[in-house]
C-alpha cells in the first residue's frame, strides 16, 4: 500500500471553490468524482489511456487521472458541466446529438471537452487534425466517424457565428449527414 497522508486543498471546480482533505496519492480525478461530486467526469481506466476523465485544468485539456489532487491546489478546473454555458460547447453538444455521435455515452463528456479544447486552439481543423485532436480519447461504440462529423458541424456553426466562414472550405470538410445539417444551418434553417 502506498503511504497516505492528508493534504488540504482548495480547488475551483466549475466556478465554485471546493475545499477538501485529500490523500497525497489521490488524483484530481479521485477528488473530482468523490469529493466535488463531478460525476460527469468518468473513470474508464485511471491510467491515462482512455481519456474519459478529460477536463480543462489550468486552461488546458488534461486527463485528470494523471494530475495529483494536491498539485491542483488553488487551480481552476472545468469539466463538461462547467463549460456548458459556452456557445462553442453548446454547438458541440447539439452536434453530437444530431450526428449520432453518442452511443453508450461513457466517452462523451471527455470527448466533448477534448473536442472543445481542439476547436479553441484551431477553429478550422481538417478531419485529420480532428482525429489527432481526439486521439487520446477512446470510443468503443462509434468507430469515430460520427464524432468527427459532429466536431465538423460544430466547427462550421461556430465559424459562422464568428463571421469568419469560408463556406467552400467548410463544405469540403463535411460529408454525409453533417453536410446536410450544415447546409440547413448555413441557409438560416437553424
Amino acid at each position: 500500500m502506498e503511504i497516505q497522508s492528508d493534504v488540504k486543498v482548495k480547488i475551483r471546480v466549475n466556478g465554485t471553490a471546493v475545499s477538501a482533505t485529500v490523500q497525497a496519492g489521490d488524483s484530481l480525478l479521485d477528488f473530482l468524482r468523490n469529493q466535488a461530486r463531478a460525476t460527469d467526469v468518468k473513470c474508464g481506466c485511471n491510467q491515462g489511456d482512455c481519456g474519459t476523465c478529460t477536463v480543462i485544468y489550468d486552461g488546458k485539456a488534461v486527463k485528470s487521472c494523471l494530475v495529483l489532487a494536491a498539485q491542483a491546489d488553488g487551480k481552476e478546473v472545468r469539466s463538461l458541466r462547467g463549460l456548458m454555458e459556452d456557445p462553442l460547447m453548446q454547438s458541440l453538444q447539439n452536434a453530437f446529438v444530431e450526428c449520432g455521435a453518442v452511443q453508450c455515452g461513457f466517452c462523451t463528456p471527455g470527448m466533448l471537452v477534448a473536442s472543445w479544447s481542439l476547436l479553441q486552439e484551431n477553429s478550422n481543423p481538417t478531419r485529420g487534425e480532428m482525429r489527432q485532436g481526439i486521439s487520446g480519447n477512446l470510443c468503443r461504440c462509434t468507430g469515430y466517424k460520427k464524432i468527427i462529423d459532429a466536431i465538423s458541424l460544430a466547427a462550421a456553426q461556430h465559424v459562422v457565428t464568428d463571421g469568419t466562414a469560408n463556406l467552400a472550405d467548410l463544405a469540403d470538410r463535411l460529408d454525409g449527414q453533417a453536410q446536410a445539417k450544415a447546409n440547413y444551418l448555413l441557409l438560416g434553417g437553424g
Binding site: 460527469d40 458541466r81 453518442v102 455515452g105 462523451t108 463528456p109
Partner: peptide
C-alpha cells in the same frame, strides 16, 4: 436518441 441529450450534459 432520447438518451443522447442527457449523455451530452454529463
Amino acid at each position: 436518441k432520447v438518451d443522447a441529450k442527457h449523455k451530452v450534459r454529463g
